[in-house]
Structure formats: C-alpha cells, structure tokens
C-alpha cells in the first residue's frame, strides 16, 4: 500500500509540478496568479491539515464530495509535493540555455513541440537531484496517510503493535523498511539520471 501510494502520488506530483511550473512562467497574468496561489497555499499549510481537509471537510454538506482514503492520500500527497516540485521545475526550466529557445524559433518549431522535445528533457535532467529529495520526502510523508485510516505500513505497524505488544521489533522493522525503500528510490533516480544524461557532454565546469 505504501509503495502504491508513493508510486501514484509521485506520478501526480510530477505532472502537477510541470503544469504549475509552466503556469508560473506563463505570460498570461491569470494563469500565473492561479499557479502562484496553488503553490503558496500547498506549500504554506501542513500536509496533515490538507489531508484532513480533503478527507473530513469535503464529504460534509456544502461540498458532498466523498472520496476513498486511498484517493485522498494520492491527491493530497501528489498536490502537496507537486507544489514543492513546481518551484524545482521552475528553476530547472529557467536553467535551459537561451540559445536553445532561439534555435527552436529558428527551426520554426511549434511552442508545444519546443517544450516537449527540447526544453523538457533538459529541464528534467537538471531537476533530478532536488527531485530525488522530494520523492524521498513523499515516501516518508506516506506514513501520514495512516492517520486517515488507510492501511499502509505505518498503520499496519500500529495494528500489529496493539495485537502483539512486540513494540520494539515492530517499529524497528518498520523504520528499516522505510529506510530500504528510500534507498531504492535513491538508486533508481541515480540510474535514471545516468540514462537521461547519456550523450551529454561531460567534464569541465559547465
């Protein structure tokens, strides 16, 4: 369950990060303000508060939107980490050299193609190291979804503890499992980075 939430949550986070970063950099003021509001609200409030808001407030009378704990977990985590990711992506997109944009213009590429084929691959590469941090953050934050009654690793640990009273073993093992999962993410991202940076000129201080 923890792995599932992490996986879908990070997918949503990456998508919302890219969309929000684009909105933030857009030349249309309305879009820009929308993106800034999204980023500031989700970065400014606590994740747990957001999860509770989605889980307890939305089903109440004025909204009447009922979601399963699983959906709330993915939505809350994805949007929360996505807001942080948006700032990372913004820096990454801005770091793509200006000459690349000019070259695209010279080749008469459409803006969509320019972003998808030229800017995004370079920006993603630059965003990987801080992105890894955020993904590990996301993994650790999945432990919070146990508080909205989703039976993830942390929730199971509590249950087992109440059933067996082998407190030390259970929590030590849980800590170890999270640690291992974090290392897996670390390793995967490093491999991804190597894959993405293939063919890129290395060396020097560039």
């Amino acid at each position: 369950m923890t792995v599932q939430v992490t996986f879908w949550g990070s997918l949503l986070a990456i998508v919302s990060a890219i969309v929000a970063a684009l909105g933030r950099l857009s030349s249309v003021p309305a879009l820009r303000w929308l993106a800034i509001t999204y980023i500031e609200v989700f970065r400014g409030t606590s994740l747990l508060v957001q999860l509770f808001w989605l889980y307890f407030v939305l089903p109440m009378p004025p909204f009447n939107i009922e979601m399963s704990a699983f959906a709330v977990a993915i939505l809350g985590l994805g949007l929360h980490i996505g807001a942080y990711g948006a700032e990372v992506m913004r820096g990454a997109i801005r770091s793509v050299a200006k000459g690349q944009y000019e070259a695209c213009q010279a080749l008469n590429m459409s803006p969509f193609k320019r972003f998808y084929r030229i800017v995004l691959p370079q920006a993603l590469l630059a965003a990987i190291p801080p992105g890894t941090n955020l993904l590990i953050e996301l993994l650790k934050n999945t432990s919070l979804v146990s508080l909205i009654t989703l039976s993830d690793l942390a929730f199971r640990a509590r249950q087992l503890d109440q059933a067996t009273f082998m407190t030390l073993e259970i929590f030590a093992l849980t800590l170890l499992l999270y640690f291992l999962l974090a290392q897996v993410i670390n390793l995967g991202m490093r491999m991804l980075e190597r894959r993405l940076s293939r063919g890129r000129m290395q060396g020097g201080l560039s």
């Binding site: 650790k140 432990s143 942390a154 929590f171 800590l175 999270y178 640690f179 974090a182």
Partner: peptide
C-alpha cells in the same frame, strides 16, 4: 542518514511506544 530517510511519524511512535517498555 537513517533518521533523514525514515518518517517522522514512525520515529515519534518509536519514542512514545517503545521507550516506556
């Protein structure tokens, strides 16, 4: 490294539920 890559929630559980034993 260990504390940085494990969740705060579990660490707090650990302090609160394991140490009293």
């Amino acid at each position: 490294e260990f504390i940085r890559s494990t969740p705060l929630l579990i660490q707090v559980y650990f302090l609160f539920y394991v140490f009293p034993n």
